[in-house]
């Protein structure tokens, strides 16, 4: 576990430092710019899906889905980040309490 923490720390810091140090023309290559733009989109979408609908190696729909539904509604209403996150947690917790 500690090795993974150090790898992540060194890797994430190097990426930040590289951004401040690389020549800006790196991004001028359209393919680089497109891939760089899309990587966070793909990863975050995958993280949402896996976080909400997986349990170990199986897929499942439970109270987390209700939490995500709240988050979607809150985001559509332009609620602040904290409202989205706390509201989603409260929705899931409430549902588990009731069922």
């Amino acid at each position: 576990m500690w090795a993974a923490i150090l790898v992540a720390a060194v890797g994430c810091y190097a990426l930040k430092w590289a951004g401040l140090s690389l020549p800006a023309r790196m991004l001028a290559r359209p393919v680089v710019a497109r891939v760089a733009d899309l990587i966070p989109v793909a990863l975050l979408a995958a993280l949402v899906a896996v976080q909400v609908w997986s349990a170990g190696t199986s897929l499942t729909v439970d109270a987390r889905t209700a939490g995500l539904a709240f988050a979607v509604a809150a985001l559509l209403l332009r609620a602040p980040f904290l409202v989205v996150v706390v509201g989603a947690a409260a929705t899931a917790a409430l549902l588990r309490l009731l069922i």
């Binding site: 988050a71 979607v72 509201g87 899931a92």
Partner: peptide, 17 residues
């Protein structure tokens, strides 16, 4: 999970996305 923390994580990723 009693506090819905597992649901909070998915919501946080969605808010960033």
């Amino acid at each position: 999970r009693t506090y819905g923390l597992d649901a909070a994580v998915g919501a946080a990723f969605l808010a960033l996305l």
